[in-house]
Each structure stands twice: as C-alpha cells, then as structure tokens.
Design a protein around this nucleic acid. Structure first.
Lengths: 227, 227
DNA sequence: ACCTGAACACCGTTCAAGT
DNA sequence: ACCTGAACACCGTTCAAGT
C-alpha cells in the first residue's frame, strides 16, 4: 500500500503532493499566525499553490477542516501527558495541557465550544472520566463532577479564544485588561456595585493559576459528597 | 425631547418607523425561529421592508447587533430575578435564569462565548459577585470562586448553543443523544475505556439538574477554603 | 485518482442619491 | 435626520475539464 503510493508519487506527482495532513498542518499555521478570520479557502489555495477543488478532494468542507485541526492539536496534547500521575493530579495535568494548548492556539477554544461530539472531545472526556473513576466516588458524583469539569474547561477555553480574538494581534495583555477595567469604571457604580473590585482582580491575577484553582474547587466540592 | 420626537414622527414618518429597538426585536425573532445562520442583513431588510443602509443607520455592524440582542435578553433575565433570595440561593437563581434563557434562545450561548466584555456580561458578573461577597469568604476565594462560576456557566451556555445548532430544528432531544451515544459505542473501547458509561449517563440525565449540581460543587469547594 | 480554476450563490458593508 | 437600493469585495462550494 505504502509502496504503491510512493511509486505513483515518483512517477507523475510532485513529491510534496497534497494530503489531508498537509492541508491540516497549513490550516493550523494560518490559524496560529493570522487568526481565525484569516483561514479561508483562498488563503489555503495560495499557500498550497493549488485550486479550491484540490482541497475539497481531501476535505469535505470547512467544518470538517476545522474539526481536523482541533483534533490534531488536542491529540498531541493528550499523548504528551505522561499518564503516570495519581488521579487528582492527572486531571490537573490534563486541564493544564488543554489550557496551555489554547494559549498557543486560541482558535481551539472557539472550535471546542462550537463543535461538540467531535473526536477531540472524546479524548478530553476520557481524560477526565478515567482518573475520576479512580477516585472511587459514587457514580452519580463522578458523572456530575465530570460534567462540571468539562463545562468549566470549555468555558475557559471559549473565553480565552474570545480574548485572543479581541487583542489586536500582539497587544500587551495587561494593557488590554487595563482598558477593560477602565471601561468598567465608567459604568454606573450603583448598577454594578462590585465592578470596581472585580476590575482590580482582573488586572493582577494569574490566569493559569486561577484556572487551576477552579479545577480544584470542583474536585473539592465532589469530595464533599463522598458518603 | 420626547415631545419633539413625537411631533416628527407624526408629521412625515410612518408610525412604525425604524429604531434600534425594533431592529433588535426583529433580529431576536429571526434568531429564535430560524437559528443563527438565518440572521442576515437581507433577512432583516425583507422582514422590516427597508434597505440595508437603513439598518446601518441605527446599528454600526453585525457584531453590535448581536451584542444588542444578547444584552436585551440577558437584561430581561436579570430584572426578572426577584433579588430577595439569600446569598447561595441568589446565585442558583441567577444561574438557572441564564440556563433557561439559553434553553429558549440558544444563540445567546454562542454570543456570550464569543463576545466577552459586552454589557450583558457585566450584569452576569455583578449578579455573581454580589451574593458571593455576602457569603463572607476571603477575598481571594471570592475572586477564584466567581471566576469559576462564570466560566462554568459560560461553558454550559456554549455547549447548549452548540447542541441547538446541531439539532436539525425540532429533532427529539433524546433521539439525538441516543445517536451520539451510538456513535460513541463505535469507538475503540481500548482507546476510550470509559466512554460506554459516559454515554449511558448522557442519555438519562437531567441537564438542568446537573447544571445546578455543578454550581453547588463549586460553591461547596469554596466553603472548603473558609479559614 | 487527483488536480485546476472559472463560475455560482450568498454574505456584510458602503455610498451616492433621494425625502 | 433618516431611508433606498444598487454596487463592491469577499466568502464557501461546485463542477466541467484536464492529467
């Protein structure tokens, strides 16, 4: 099979022939470098020097392409996780892995929020369910806790993707947060009495650390329900 | 000011003159009835029997229009909440209010995940921060717990919106979930050892109830950190 | 089997022109 | 001040035609 393909490639195709993998990799490069809006079939065709139809030969449509890019990145994250960690730590490792992946590929957050039931999601669900089972909590608590963890992670993912979309590509993060806090300060303090404090917290908090605390809150809450 | 406007309206404008409110209401109707994809400027112009430019006179662009629709619905939810509930119950009421709003207007979930810092988000943040403060937890715990609650709620919101997008407009919900579970069953059990059980839970669980349990898990976790 | 690229339908947005 | 609607730029997708 592999031999036959190589023969064909040698005879009349350029060695860098198109493939789904190559298309997906190029799509990831565009998404990382220029953002979600920049990924168009025209951008792909020029980068790959082909026609639109060539891409459609390997990929059904844009949704499938986006799902494939997300799968590729998430699969990488999941395989990089050691897997020899103890149950509660394993969940933290998984969550942090996804968090960091979204930090470097913010568009994943949009994808995960948009297309559930894609195979990337299966890996995440499995990565949560397995160590959760090892904790020996009642079945119902396992289910509720797993659902909470998944939704929380997806929520953070979506928000981080939204932030990246708003940042004019290379703006200073704290600069941006200060601008947000300033806009909040203009709001009616009577209407939103606690906005001032929240704005302060917004500026000097560690996203990654707070993300982990959220995971721990949910896990601690689940321990509360242990009979 | 109001008198002057009425005079103008009486003289030479039809009584159903265009306004931002009218545009927003029509947009909400389209979104509710036909889904996110159906909301185009062309659909709006035919429904409102005007030209595209007329809409752009009242609304800067599509993003602003979508933000305005979300604001309108969320504001309604927030004002409908009694507000005389005790701290932990107040948070549950707010969360359930948002959950139900997304159930009837699924597109809100997409919007909340896409455009943070819009004014709808301010109301939600305030609605969480205020009762949380009343619980008398340490400041850091308040901040972390508030962040976790917000991200969890937004995560559920985004997922529910995604589900609604996938459901072919009126499909039976359990039918759909069974289809998902069936697709999961086809996966490699060695690769995803816990998918079978998760699929079972998927079918016979109460979304709304599980959503609330998630809120309670986070709140219980926060109580754990009380000194 | 795989690729090319023109063509199609559709979208958000603009703008000169009207009232 | 507010509205009209043709026009523009751009998008995802299709498909007859090539190799």
């Amino acid at each position: 099979m592999r031999v036959k393909m190589n023969l064909m490639a040698d005879r009349k195709r350029r060695t860098d022939a198109l493939s789904k993998e190559k298309i997906v990799e190029t799509a990831i490069e565009i998404l990382d470098a220029e953002g979600e809006k920049a990924l168009t079939f025209r951008a792909l065709t020029t980068r790959l020097t082909t026609g639109a139809g060539a891409i459609y030969w390997h990929v059904a449509n844009k949704d499938e392409l986006l799902a494939a890019t997300t799968d590729a990145v998430i699969t990488r994250v999941l395989t990089e996780i050691s897997g020899d960690a103890e149950p509660p730590e394993a969940i933290r490792e998984l969550a942090l892995g996804i968090f960091d992946a979204i930090d470097t590929h913010p568009w994943i957050g949009t994808q995960l929020s948009r297309a559930p039931w894609q195979s990337a999601m299966l890996g995440i669900i499995g990565g949560i369910a397995e160590p959760l089972h090892a904790l020996g909590l009642p079945e119902k608590v396992q289910s509720d806790c797993g659902s909470a963890l998944l939704n929380y992670i997806l929520g953070v993912a979506g928000q981080n993707a939204a932030h990246a979309r708003l940042l004019p590509a290379g703006t200073d993060r704290t600069e941006f947060l200060k601008a947000v806090a300033a806009r909040w300060a203009e709001q009616d303090p009577a209407k939103y009495p606690f906005l001032g404090r929240v704005a302060e917290q917004l500026i000097d908090h560690d996203d990654r650390e707070q993300f982990l605390v959220g995971i721990d809150l949910i896990l601690a809450g689940a321990q509360t329900l242990r009979p």
